[in-house]
């Protein structure tokens, strides 16, 4: 569904990503791991054309995205949850979710209330304004909101940041379940290896803007020095 070939990304004169190649089949879930500053967020923003200047080919459903603005990409079914959440502070929780339905562009999508059920911590907060939520509540809402557009490929940037362990576990279950039910693909950037493993079937390692490893989780586990070298754990 998503094919990225030879992607370079720049901020000003500085090149951040170098010749990235990455793909995800229909409904497939992959993780991207890497140190702070490796370029994970830049990669996701490049896919949405939402920040860095980009060169290279990004294909979605075989179609070259080229210069397409981010709102058109969202309407095609790409949904990015940025690392800084970006919850609308003057809209209620329910409205924050409902507003994202306009990006569905006619696709079938989960009802806002269904989403609240799935992320049950949000249920009692329905009427609260986004700006009044705690950090973790906002994070969860940002993830929930992304499902309202009926996405076909979800791009999550560190969705577990600031979440309590129980909620992380719950989120791992829900994301896996919803993605399976609705046939949603996933590109997940994470620091939490436990969570990444629970949600995805294979992974990429990225270091200073280059893909340095790509393969399944068992292969990753077999190469202990990978972890050592690129995640420094």
């Amino acid at each position: 569904m998503l094919e990225v070939a030879h992607l370079d990304a720049f901020y000003g004169d500085g090149q951040i990503l170098h010749a990235i190649a990455l793909d995800a089949a229909e409904g497939e879930r992959v993780a991207v791991l890497g140190r702070n500053g490796a370029g994970k967020s830049t990669l996701l923003k490049s896919l949405m054309n939402a920040g860095p200047r980009v060169a290279g080919a990004i294909r979605f459903d075989g179609r070259l995205l080229a210069e397409m603005p981010s709102y058109r990409r969202a309407q095609l079914g790409l949904a990015l949850v940025p690392e800084d959440r970006r919850i609308y502070s003057h809209l209620t929780v329910l409205e924050n979710i409902a507003i994202a339905r306009y990006g569905a562009a006619g696709r079938k999508a989960m009802e806002p209330r269904q989403i609240l059920e799935r992320f049950s911590m949000l249920k009692p907060l329905e009427e609260r304004y986004g700006g009044q939520l705690s950090g973790g509540q906002q994070q969860l809402l940002a993830v929930g909101r992304a499902f309202a557009a009926g996405p076909r490929l979800l791009l999550l940037d560190e969705p577990t940041e600031g979440l309590a362990p129980v909620i992380v576990e719950q989120m791992a279950r829900e994301i896996a379940a919803i993605c399976d039910e609705e046939k949603v693909g996933l590109v997940l950037c994470e620091q939490n290896i436990w969570f990444a493993r629970a949600c995805t079937s294979r992974l990429y390692l990225i270091d200073t803007g280059r893909i340095v490893f790509s393969g399944g989780w068992d292969e990753f586990d077999r190469n202990a020095d990978l972890k050592q070298r690129y995640l420094a754990v």
Partner: peptide, 21 residues
């Protein structure tokens, strides 16, 4: 009105949500 406000408050995110900014 809500859509307009969302656009206003954070047009970058509104674009990511598929609104024609």
């Amino acid at each position: 009105g809500k859509l307009m406000q969302a656009l206003a408050a954070d047009s970058w995110m509104a674009g990511l949500l598929g609104l024609n900014v």
